[in-house]
Amino acid sequence: MSSQENNQQTLLEVEDLTMRFGGLVAVNKVKLNVKSGQIVSIIGPNGAGKTTVFNCLTGFYKPSDGRISYRGENITGSKNHEISRKGIVRTFQHVRLFKSMTVLENLLVAQHRHLNTNLLSGLFKTPAYRRSEQAAFDRASFWLDKVNLKSMANRDAGNLSYGQQRRLEIARCMVTQPDMLMLDEPAAGLNPRETKELDELICELRDHHNVSVMLIEHDMKLVMEISDHIYVINQGTPLADGLPDQIKNNPDVIKAYLGEA
């Protein structure tokens, strides 16, 4: 561990995370540690259990065993929406947008918690309601600009190209003002130029927007370039972890994963 890592505060700590589906052990005693302001990647072959780890961390699955703590608070087994309210949001391996709603509406839905949700003040458009609505528009506008989708604001989300949908999904996470962003294979299906843009976007999020990022990705160039720390999982079991250079040169990893390709 580098000295820089030691200075930072631990945001998420996972110990002995285990997930069983009947007889199948999809995740076996996985340990993770994410410090604030880091980009941490999880890599491993298909079916290694990476998405399952994400599902456990975000409350989609109740882990069979282990402990997840976020900012020192035990969140193991908390409900999905409770966890995301604490500031952990994610994207999905298969994009999940509100397809028949517009791009802008997608971003407004995500901000429901920052909007004034009082029924009466909404019905009668009180000044307070208008202000919170305007703030939501501004925030949406800001992030649409960041992901280069401003001109698409009133298009149906389902009509965007694949790369645009991926970016919109990230923007939709960001308008919730998270502390931790979890991206599940965000570069899958992107062309090299789009991947480059994604790389820059993720770095910007970390450097200027106070989010830590957890990343599942198969694009090794991307992973090695931007990760502060990498965890390797193979068949549900942790194989190695360390800095990009350490992982690149780890014989076990090369054998199990990099060598395969």
Binding site: S84, M101, V109, R172
Partner: peptide, 12 residues
């Protein structure tokens, strides 16, 4: 449209 995405955005 998508209840899983809703939950992941903190909606009950």
């Amino acid at each position: 449209e998508d209840d899983i995405a809703c939950q992941s955005l903190g909606m009950n």
